[in-house]
Design a protein around this nucleic acid. Sequence first.
DNA 1: CGCGGAGTTGATGTTGATCAAAGAAGGTGG
DNA 2: CCACCTTCTTTGATCAACATCAACTCCGCG
Lengths: 248, 248
Amino acid sequence: MIKSVLRKLEHHHLLSTAETQALAEAIARPRYVKPHEDLVSRGDSPGRVTLLLDGFATRYKTLEDGRRQILGLLVPGDFCDLHSAVLGRMDHSIATVSPATVATMRADVVEQLSTRHSSLAHALLWCTLIDDAITREWVVNLGRRTAYERTAHFFCEIHARLAAVGLSRGSSCRLPLTQTELGETLGISTVHVNRTLQELRRKGLVTIRGGELTIHDHDQLMADALFDPDYLYALGQKHPPTRNAANG
Amino acid sequence: MIKSVLRKLEHHHLLSTAETQALAEAIARPRYVKPHEDLVSRGDSPGRVTLLLDGFATRYKTLEDGRRQILGLLVPGDFCDLHSAVLGRMDHSIATVSPATVATMRADVVEQLSTRHSSLAHALLWCTLIDDAITREWVVNLGRRTAYERTAHFFCEIHARLAAVGLSRGSSCRLPLTQTELGETLGISTVHVNRTLQELRRKGLVTIRGGELTIHDHDQLMADALFDPDYLYALGQKHPPTRNAANG
DNA sequence: CGCGGAGTTGATGTTGATCAAAGAAGGTGG
DNA sequence: CCACCTTCTTTGATCAACATCAACTCCGCG
């Protein structure tokens, strides 16, 4: 369960046993959360940092008139609100989309750990910065890619990110989003999501069914999406040699 | 010149004299840069951090086929590439849009300063996180707002950000972007930018001319834009009481 | 068996893209 | 100081992408 977290943190570089232990201890009892429940809401000043151990969640913002935009998809191993520890308050909300397991750590404990263990601090900062790089790519996605390219690009990204934490099986991975949620992610209407998915299916590139994404032609999908995994900083590739090569 | 930087860093909370001095010293001779010149390019591993002292710059990415998206507008006082110190390489480029003055600091010096002066480290992190909050709002802008709303929103944001570093004169501020660049920022075509600007002008909300933005009806503009300055974390408002209330 | 949420479909409407070209405006060299 | 050239802005006409509206279907579940 905590493995996905370490897997992500150690992508950057290995943590010492003391560090992983400190981290593991700080993570209080994991908590189960129902789908479609807010983990943190806009305006909150949590004082605790939430870590997604299992399941999927979204960052989102809602305009006064109800239009909703998903700002990021959180996958197991992702921190939800590290930034709120510094900024003091949330400018957006975070909600589960599937059943999820989360752990929380007191913000001051994280801060303490960070001062004591500098490479942990570094790893946390690294996570935050990767998130930003992803957000920037979403700006490109929304601003310059067509609905079809966007969808393809999103699928490439999710597959890469899940592979990075050991949650892909070959060309498949979980992706429990409804078409409405996909639309809120990609900035297009539900109806158009549906038609775009049909096109991807018709071309034999991707199918998504029952919350399961399968990529049939990865090369073509990447080409159609103008996908360049650069911005993930090798998240999708091999990580540094692990101390004990025990698997997931 | 360095005032805008301090003004931004101290928005968060005041730095000690030692800290501001260390910072001022670390900033090597300011350098003049011509408009439309890359400060840092995608793929670079600069080893130096660049600070924009005067003028405007953009973060941007270009797709293989030439489509270009601007990911962020940098205004005086903004750091260009703090993250590259941690991530090691740039996933996007940064170019001036106007004549500019920049300073650079060796990344290892910044790191040293940060370990020695913890509230400086905090301030730098704060800057980075504000940038992220802005990027997230851009995702909302591109994903959910109409061309007209987006444009209005962008103007609200820029005015607030420039006000925060003392670079607005009442309802006016500089904004030296061509309509093409505005289009690359807002994800719309140049022609449509032009028509949108006409509408904003016709409604008596905003005029932009010769790189100068003037907001005639701030309330209506904010309303039309669905602008909520929340995400700027009071950047636009008063900062903490200054040691010496000397002005800019 | 019926209910509700998600997915699918067709018809129609709008927003914004694209193409093409004509005016401003600003910068440069003669 | 003017003529020229480039870049930016503006305009009109046409077109494509995507939104919206309104059913209808499918599927899991009580």
